[in-house]
Design a protein around this nucleic acid. Sequence first.
DNA 1: GCAACCTACAACCAATCGGTTGTAGATTGT
DNA 2: ACAATCTACAACCGATTGGTTGTAGGTTGC
Lengths: 126, 126
Amino acid sequence: MTEGTNEDRADALFHALADRTRRDIMRRVLAGEHSVSALAQHYDMSFAAVQKHVAVLERAGLITKRRVGREALATGDIDTVRSVGSMLTEIEQVWRGRIARMDDLLASPSESGSSSPSPIDTTKEH
Amino acid sequence: MTEGTNEDRADALFHALADRTRRDIMRRVLAGEHSVSALAQHYDMSFAAVQKHVAVLERAGLITKRRVGREALATGDIDTVRSVGSMLTEIEQVWRGRIARMDDLLASPSESGSSSPSPIDTTKEH
DNA sequence: GCAACCTACAACCAATCGGTTGTAGATTGT
DNA sequence: ACAATCTACAACCGATTGGTTGTAGGTTGC
């Protein structure tokens, strides 16, 4: 079904969260199920506009819609929200690597190369 | 100086991270200082394009530039990255609230209203 | 049956985005 | 002095975004 790179997913997720209306919708649908029209009542824009925002969130996997009667009830997907957090900590991990290397440098100023070969290219090359 | 709502900050931060080139730049500048031209060498686009990406990240507060000689050395701001994580956990917090309310409902099915008045509006209103 | 409601989607529009090229200024090395 | 390098920014362009209105179809209640 939804094929795509991890980077594609990250693009879609961060983009989906880069709009205050969509973030507000996320808070509401994480608190509980809401129909699209119920969501739309809270915003000063057309129903179609809110529907588009919901579609963006749904395409990113941040919410799922369940059809009951004539209503489409949207629920927030907490696991997907957490996966965004994982992407951030993965980026923070790179920073931890820098600190570890700095510690190495302070601990053993004798050898030019560190004892453990770093998996990250640190050359400044300028 | 940089006035703006928290929501404005969130808009800028998520938007800045919603591009794979900018995320890659973030990983590099979190690992260590890099000049803009050194960063540009890694991407299949013009120097000016990379410079714009760096500017977006800088405006969002995700990196800071330090001028040394003719070079502009960019460093990743780990605290700002973590503040994005905080925004996410703040959103997750809303979800925890839902679960807590569900637990309340299961624990005391006698009273119609919960004992602690919820700070979040849970009415479905449809 | 039919009016009211909810959803979906198309078509359009101004603004923004991500890229380009070009120009100009400051710094460096020889 | 001068060529090479690094940065900054303006102007432009096609694609995307976030909004609008309009149209159409399924569901509900009377």
